[in-house]
Simulated scan of single mutants.
Amino acid sequence: MSNLEREPAELVCPPALPQASPARILEPRDVPLGGPRAMGVRRTLPQRGRTTIGAWCFIDHYGPDDVAVTGGMVVPPHPHTGLQTVSWLFEGEVEHRDSVGSHAFVVPGDVNLMTAGHGISHSEISTPETTVLHGVQLWTVLPDASRDVAPFFENATTTPVAVDDATVRVFVGELEGAPPGTVTTFSPLVAAQIDVPEGGEAWIPLDPDFEHGFLVDAGPAHLTFAALEREVDPAGENDDPLSETGHTIDVARNELAFLTTGHEGVRVRATAGPVRLVLVGGTPFEEEIVMWWNFIGRDHDEIVAFRAQWEQDVIAGADPSGRFGAVGDSGDPLPAPVLPGIRLKPRNER
């Protein structure tokens, strides 16, 4: 998905700094993707005070939307650099085309992952059969050693598994107790959908080396982030968890709960209706990056160069086979917004 804001903020994202609170709520902001009838999204990442969770750097949450009212998703060809896009749907279908020749459909239960690397362009359009559109779009930052890889696209089907009362689908990385995701990653990452019926609960193990985010699609979700205390049995016959200690919060629908490192699990309780959430996580991202529009670079000058290449090679048609390539049968490509008239200065937003 493209960032269609006409005046996108330039963000310099510094390395992670220690946080006093183990968990806190990040509120969404509404972003329209286009004109007055355009589909809207709820953006929880990036925002002031938190620009990444692991290498996850962008979270858009949308729907359930009546396509007859919103017009659905219509995102013409647009560029990306230095990142991966991860598309995950709860309902509906989206057609994907890109400049490396991929043509695929995003459907519930499948994950589409596109690695932009050196540069790619793509389009995303909801299909005519789609009446309701509902899902999330996520980006991950590619670390410096991998950010110039050749672009490629992957689609994978996930397998649901029961964990206590929950149904869990892992679509990126690994989560104990569930089949792992099979798409390519370039840093330690996890992403999963977790569904808990009303009155149910589930213990979800977490990697203590990861930061985590919990985006609630249906809720509220009652979350207890904890380490497990175990009774030591000299005979070695009883090491069942006895109690949980940690931080408990209630997370409303559309909110994102951010959790610092050092936690071994979360108990998800559905105390006021069914819960559906998307869990993301990864090791703290230690590199400073610059995000603007659909580009990720390492300094202001790189962003300026990416924009100039897109405008010259694709919008002006000077070299359609250049860094970003061309996407066929998807309409006219999106012109890049105008850059602000100031150079970037690092902001400590973490």
Rank of each mutant, 00 (worst) to 15 (best):
residue 207 D to W: 01
residue 263 H to W: 15
residue 204 I to E: 03
residue 227 A to P: 02
residue 268 V to A: 11
residue 241 P to G: 12
residue 240 D to Y: 12
residue 269 R to Q: 15
residue 216 V to P: 10
residue 280 V to S: 08
residue 276 R to K: 09
residue 250 D to W: 12
residue 234 P to Y: 09
residue 265 G to P: 03
residue 227 A to N: 13
residue 281 G to N: 06
residue 245 T to F: 09
residue 287 E to L: 07
residue 209 D to I: 07
residue 266 V to C: 12
residue 291 M to W: 00
residue 220 P to S: 08
residue 236 G to T: 01
residue 221 A to Q: 04
residue 296 I to P: 01
residue 231 E to H: 15
residue 252 A to Q: 13
residue 212 H to G: 15
residue 240 D to M: 09
residue 230 R to G: 04
residue 256 L to F: 07
residue 238 N to Q: 08
residue 268 V to E: 13
residue 206 L to D: 12
residue 255 E to T: 04
residue 287 E to W: 02
residue 217 D to L: 11
residue 234 P to I: 07
residue 225 F to I: 05
residue 265 G to A: 05
residue 218 A to Q: 13
residue 246 G to Y: 11
residue 256 L to K: 00
residue 285 F to Y: 14
residue 218 A to S: 11
residue 222 H to K: 01
residue 290 V to E: 10
residue 206 L to R: 04
residue 244 E to V: 14
residue 204 I to V: 08
residue 211 E to Q: 14
residue 282 G to R: 06
residue 248 T to Y: 10
residue 240 D to V: 05
residue 207 D to F: 01
residue 263 H to D: 00
residue 267 R to L: 11
residue 256 L to S: 10
residue 245 T to S: 05
residue 222 H to G: 00
residue 237 E to L: 10
residue 214 F to N: 08
residue 208 P to H: 12
residue 262 G to F: 02
residue 218 A to R: 15
residue 230 R to S: 08
residue 260 T to W: 03
residue 290 V to Q: 01
residue 235 A to E: 03
residue 289 I to P: 00
residue 210 F to K: 09
residue 281 G to P: 00
residue 209 D to L: 14
residue 210 F to N: 09
residue 208 P to C: 13
residue 254 N to E: 11
residue 274 P to I: 06
residue 267 R to M: 13
residue 250 D to E: 15
residue 224 T to W: 02
residue 227 A to T: 09
residue 293 W to E: 00
residue 230 R to C: 06
residue 229 E to F: 06
residue 290 V to F: 00
residue 268 V to M: 10
residue 274 P to H: 05
residue 289 I to G: 01
residue 246 G to W: 12
residue 293 W to F: 01
residue 230 R to I: 12
residue 268 V to H: 11
residue 284 P to W: 06
residue 274 P to A: 13
residue 288 E to G: 01
residue 287 E to D: 11
residue 261 T to E: 13
residue 245 T to N: 06
residue 253 R to L: 09
residue 274 P to D: 12
residue 214 F to D: 08
residue 247 H to Q: 12
residue 209 D to G: 11
residue 258 F to I: 02
residue 244 E to W: 13
residue 291 M to P: 02
residue 238 N to G: 03
residue 203 W to F: 08
residue 277 L to Y: 01
residue 294 N to Y: 02
residue 249 I to K: 04
residue 281 G to D: 01
residue 257 A to L: 14
residue 225 F to R: 07
residue 276 R to S: 14
residue 229 E to S: 11
residue 239 D to N: 09
residue 245 T to H: 07
residue 241 P to D: 09
residue 251 V to F: 04
residue 242 L to I: 15
residue 284 P to L: 10
residue 214 F to R: 12
residue 279 L to A: 08
residue 265 G to V: 06
residue 250 D to I: 15
residue 242 L to S: 08
residue 231 E to D: 15
residue 207 D to C: 05
residue 250 D to N: 13
residue 292 W to N: 06
residue 295 F to S: 00
residue 269 R to M: 14
residue 260 T to F: 10
residue 216 V to H: 14
residue 248 T to R: 14
residue 256 L to D: 03
residue 233 D to F: 04
residue 248 T to W: 07
residue 248 T to N: 14
residue 229 E to M: 05
residue 260 T to D: 14
residue 254 N to V: 04
residue 266 V to Y: 02
residue 236 G to F: 03
residue 231 E to P: 06
residue 283 T to E: 09
residue 204 I to G: 04
residue 247 H to D: 13
residue 293 W to C: 01
residue 224 T to V: 08
residue 292 W to P: 08
residue 243 S to R: 15
residue 246 G to A: 07
residue 203 W to R: 11
residue 257 A to T: 05
residue 237 E to T: 08
residue 279 L to P: 03
residue 278 V to Y: 14
